[in-house]
Nucleic acid binder design. Sequence first.
DNA 1: CTGAAAGCGCTTACAG
DNA 2: CTGAAAGCGCTTACAG
Lengths: 358, 358
Amino acid sequence: MEEIARLADVSIATVSRVMNGSSLVSESTAARVRQVMKETRYLPNNTATSLKSGISRIYGVIIPDITNPFFAEFIKAFESIAIEKNEEILLANTDFHPSGMELSIRRLVTRQVQGAALLVSQVSEETCDALLKNNVPMVTFDRRVTGPGTSDVAIDSLPGMDQAVAHLKELGHKRIAYIGGIAGEPISDHRDHSFLRALKNHDLPLWPELVRVGDYRIRGGESAMSGLLSLPTPPTAVIAANDLTAIGAMRVVHERGYAAGRDFSIVGFDDIELSGILSPALTTIALSRVQLARCFFDALESFKRRVDCAGRQWKVETRLVVRQSTGRPRRSGRKRRSSSSGGNGTAAGAKPMLDKRR
Amino acid sequence: MEEIARLADVSIATVSRVMNGSSLVSESTAARVRQVMKETRYLPNNTATSLKSGISRIYGVIIPDITNPFFAEFIKAFESIAIEKNEEILLANTDFHPSGMELSIRRLVTRQVQGAALLVSQVSEETCDALLKNNVPMVTFDRRVTGPGTSDVAIDSLPGMDQAVAHLKELGHKRIAYIGGIAGEPISDHRDHSFLRALKNHDLPLWPELVRVGDYRIRGGESAMSGLLSLPTPPTAVIAANDLTAIGAMRVVHERGYAAGRDFSIVGFDDIELSGILSPALTTIALSRVQLARCFFDALESFKRRVDCAGRQWKVETRLVVRQSTGRPRRSGRKRRSSSSGGNGTAAGAKPMLDKRR
DNA sequence: CTGAAAGCGCTTACAG
DNA sequence: CTGAAAGCGCTTACAG
């Protein structure tokens, strides 16, 4: 910067003003300074700027695992918004390190982030304190707690769930199962609740044995589905708490020789890119990653870097996207297994789409 | 920090020394200072540290797209190494922004990264200059150019390719096709070359019409595969330049009523997590993401933040992982289409694993 | 072993 | 409109 000042024959203060677009500089000198900056290919040292101004232009984002498509897609959307506003993003994956959360918080605070987006399920009091006491406002994910420096982005799962149940009912399904997320997590509870509510809205009975828990992964979907298909009277359709769970369910369906969509209906949740590529393409309750990212960003930004700024509840909508994994129930819903497992060949050639690993 | 100094009744210099584990502090005062830091939950302001020391403890990583599993898995591995060494990572996705590369470089330089890992294909002279002139050493991906402040991590694709060809030959394949990456990119050229070399190593003929280009995506694999299957004498096996290409190829194979592994053999490249989950699970040339990340990190670290430090060529190995997408050729390799497309039922029930979208 | 002081590269009142 | 100067929160020779 000194070099620029020297070459343009001004003080460093003026150089700084030009960079920040201050109106207190004559156009002629400003032009001269800009010229020199261009020639020298000068780029400001952001760490000095941050130190002096106290503004880091960094938001922290904590997620469980970047290799989960849901989070990768979220990060993609979030980064694109941040870059546009000339903000940086500090990414922390809690699953990669034993002391995940604690370490991540430390990293964020140490780097002076202006706010933290917490897309993890278990947000402890301790975590909140660590953030808030260090003057870092935070936005949580479907935790439904707000306060000073604390906002929350909730998923309004009811509309999508309602549409899904309506869709299945219209197709003729009566025994609709549900595979939830990890029990005890607020986000799972809300989703479960929406399902129950949607059943009620459409006067459909709730069969307790048709409600299972998963783990938001393929594995959980598989084992829950296995249980469901082993029931004396299995369901004819299932709604899963997320797409990976639905994919697991779909694999089990295929492995047993049924064809998803034709013999058994499956609805996912999230609409990750993969959902549209699967075969059959997954009918799913879409949760726009772009809207979600926008929501988090706006929530973060509206704190204006201050923890004493009131937080608020944000919400993002969901809606059903009908693809090929849903269809009319094959039979009345009873005797499904015996009717199909006899090897009459209708689905005998169907191949499992995914194997048992993972 | 002043507060700590005051509470512990020492100077800020001593506090700093304690934080940095200097041996010039008596154990008693050090203990006292640590105590106070613990109570206060003090965390140092990294931006000040960076400014003063001139060490940012950040490495920049530029990739095309985080939602591509290959890169997500790379980032996962790289982050985990970086965190262990108490370094941060600044991630830039070039595909998300029109002026991708230029903007990304700017972000890295501005944030004073200590080095940049460039996992993108087209690295222009301009890009290198922008980095090097700003004192940022760089490590490129299979570009095979080294110099001061410039290292390269190459994929040694030959061993894996050789094993793949050997595997296919042993199964009885003679007409082996290849679907490459984007033509003109160094990384694609090296991979192509390894394939040709492997054929020669095993005295297998090269049929020019069996060598096609793709785009490292599902789409490219699909169209290349369609072309191959429409040939008067189609191949009996194909090796793809990456797993996504192989997945595209597999979809086309399934769509035409063949079963991958049984009627047609497919080999991928990379071994993304998805490969093991597909059905049939993909036989592929594995490129360890952990090794790759380790290599990039070490290469970066060995510059010691100086562009005048000589770079060198790094290399990461590949090896074949045999799963279910390869098997004996169904017939002699001729008349494949007519023999199977007649609807004899052998593969009639096979379902495409992925649909046409994307 | 410990502290006072200079300085990292910026920004921003404060004078002129 | 422009510049001199203080200061952001640290680190590190330099004295003691």
